[in-house]
C-alpha cells in the first residue's frame, strides 16, 4: 500500500473512531432531549420508544410559559450565569497567581500547600455544610450570590492550581529571561510570554470550573434563601413533588441548562488552539 493511501485509510479510521466516541457521548444526552419532547404517556411507558412520536412541546412550553416555581426560568439561568462566570474569572486569576508561586518558587510550606489543596477536595461537602453555613453567615455573605461565587472559587481552586502549575512549569524559563533582557516589566512578561503558553491549561480549568459551579447544588440550596436568587440546579427540584415527579419538565429544563455550557465551551475553546500558535511563534 502506498503511503498516501495508507494515510487516507488512517484518517478514515480516526474519523470513524471520532464518530463512535461522539455517539457514545451523545446518546444519553439525546435521550434527555428526546424525553423533553415526549408526551407523558411516552415517558411513562414500558416499551422502548426511540423517538418522540409525534414530538410534543408540552414540557418545553410549560417550562417557558409557566416558569419554575412561579418564577420565569430566565431568572434562575441568569443567577447561574452570574455565579458561574464570576467564579470562573475570579478562580482563574487566583489560581494562576498561586500556580505561578508553586511552580516558579521554592518556599516553605510549598508541598504542604499543594497537599492542603487536595484535602479540601477530599472532605464530603455534606459534612462541611453546617460549619460553612455559619461561617458564611458570620461574614455577612448569606443569601448573596457573592457568597456562592466565593465558595465555588474555593471548591474549584484546588484542581485549577494543580493543573495550571504543570502548565506554568512547562514554560521554558529561557523565554521569560529573554523577555526580561528585552526590558519588559513583570506584568508585560506575564502577559506576553507566560499567558499565551498556559492558555490551553487555563481553558481546561475554566471549563472545569464553569461546569462544576454550574451544577453545584448543596451550597446553592443552603446559602441562598431568597427564591429570586436560586440557581438552576436548585430550581430543578421544584419539579419533584411530594408524591410524583415531573420528569418531562426536569428533562426540558435540564436540556435548557446544558446549552449555556456548550456556548461557554465554544467561546473559550478557540483559545486552546490559539494558545498553541502564540506559543509556537514565541518559541
Amino acid at each position: 500500500m502506498n503511503p498516501l493511501a495508507r494515510r487516507k485509510l488512517v484518517q478514515i479510521a480516526l474519523n470513524a473512531a471520532g464518530i463512535a466516541v461522539f455517539l457514545f457521548a451523545v446518546f444519553p444526552v439525546y435521550w434527555m432531549v428526546a424525553t423533553a419532547f415526549k408526551p407523558n404517556d411516552q415517558i411513562f411507558t414500558t416499551s422502548f420508544i426511540p423517538f418522540p412520536s409525534p414530538p410534543s412541546l408540552d414540557h418545553v412550553e410549560r417550562v417557558f410559559t409557566k416558569g419554575v416555581g412561579d418564577l420565569p426560568i430566565w431568572q434562575y439561568l441568569l443567577n447561574s450565569t452570574i455565579v458561574a462566570l464570576s467564579a470562573v474569572v475570579l478562580g482563574a486569576v487566583f489560581a494562576l497567581l498561586a500556580a505561578t508561586a508553586v511552580a516558579r518558587f521554592r518556599f516553605r510550606f510549598r508541598t504542604s500547600f499543594l497537599i492542603l489543596l487536595l484535602i479540601v477536595q477530599m472532605v464530603p461537602a455534606e459534612a462541611l455544610l453546617i460549619p460553612l453555613f455559619t461561617m458564611v453567615k458570620r461574614i455577612g455573605l448569606y443569601d448573596q450570590l457573592l457568597g456562592l461565587i466565593v465558595i465555588n472559587v474555593g471548591l474549584t481552586l484546588p484542581f485549577s492550581v494543580w493543573m495550571l502549575r504543570t502548565f506554568v512549569a512547562a514554560v521554558p524559563k529561557e523565554l521569560e529571561e529573554a523577555s526580561w533582557i528585552d526590558g519588559a516589566g513583570r506584568f508585560t512578561t506575564f502577559w506576553r510570554v507566560l499567558f499565551p503558553l498556559v492558555a490551553p491549561g487555563l481553558v481546561a480549568t475554566s471549563i472545569f470550573a464553569f461546569i462544576t459551579t454550574w451544577n453545584e447544588f448543596v451550597f446553592a440550596l443552603t446559602l441562598i434563601n431568597d427564591q429570586g436568587k436560586y440557581t438552576m440546579p436548585v430550581a430543578l427540584n421544584y419539579f419533584v413533588g411530594q408524591r410524583s415527579t415531573d420528569w418531562g419538565g426536569i428533562m426540558a429544563a435540564s436540556t435548557l441548562m446544558t446549552i449555556p455550557v456548550l456556548v461557554f465551551f465554544l467561546l473559550v475553546q478557540r483559545r486552546m488552539v490559539s494558545g498553541l500558535v502564540a506559543g509556537a511563534v514565541k518559541g
Partner: peptide, 9 residues
C-alpha cells in the same frame, strides 16, 4: 459531543 455529556446535570 463529549462536552454535552460532561455538561448534563
Amino acid at each position: 459531543g463529549i462536552m454535552a455529556a460532561w455538561a448534563t446535570p
